[in-house]
Every structure is written in structure tokens, then in C-alpha cells.
């Protein structure tokens, strides 16, 4: 299910929870970027993710 886009107010609240205070100039662009990233990541949810462990490759392949 597609999630609704975050608003600049949502993003400001999320940022504040992390101790971040984006300027007004930053806020709109950060909102666009975050919504774009959420959209780009959404299709990953349809992949068979449970087939693999959430781990990066080891330095020495087995």
C-alpha cells in the first residue's frame, strides 16, 4: 500500500525529534527528497526479502 507523502510540517517534526532544525529553504527540498526516497524504496517491499538475511557480503566469500 502506497504511503501518503510527508508534508513539510511532518518533516520538520521528524527532524526536531532528532535534534535537527532544517531552515525554511532546506525544508521543502528535504521533503521532496525524502518522499522520492520512500517512493523509490516502496517496490522493494514486493521482493522476496525473507529469502535472505539482512547482512552485507563478508570480506572473504565462502
Amino acid at each position: 500500500m502506497a504511503l501518503p507523502d510527508l508534508t513539510p510540517a511532518d518533516v520538520r517534526a521528524l527532524a526536531a525529534a532528532l535534534g535537527l532544525a532544517p531552515t525554511d529553504d532546506d525544508l521543502l527540498e528535504v521533503t521532496h527528497r525524502l518522499n522520492a526516497m520512500r517512493d523509490a524504496l516502496a517496490p522493494l517491499g514486493a521482493l522476496p526479502l525473507d529469502e535472505v538475511e539482512p547482512a552485507p557480503p563478508a570480506p572473504e566469500p565462502s
Partner: peptide, 16 residues
């Protein structure tokens, strides 16, 4: 601001 779940999902996508 990305949630931890997105990072976890991306880690599994990487493995796939």
C-alpha cells in the same frame, strides 16, 4: 529521517 525499517528492507534487497 529514513525509518529503520527502510534501512532493514534495503539491506535485504542488497542481499537479494
Amino acid at each position: 529521517l529514513l525509518p529503520a525499517g527502510a534501512y532493514h528492507q534495503a539491506t535485504r534487497a542488497r542481499a537479494l
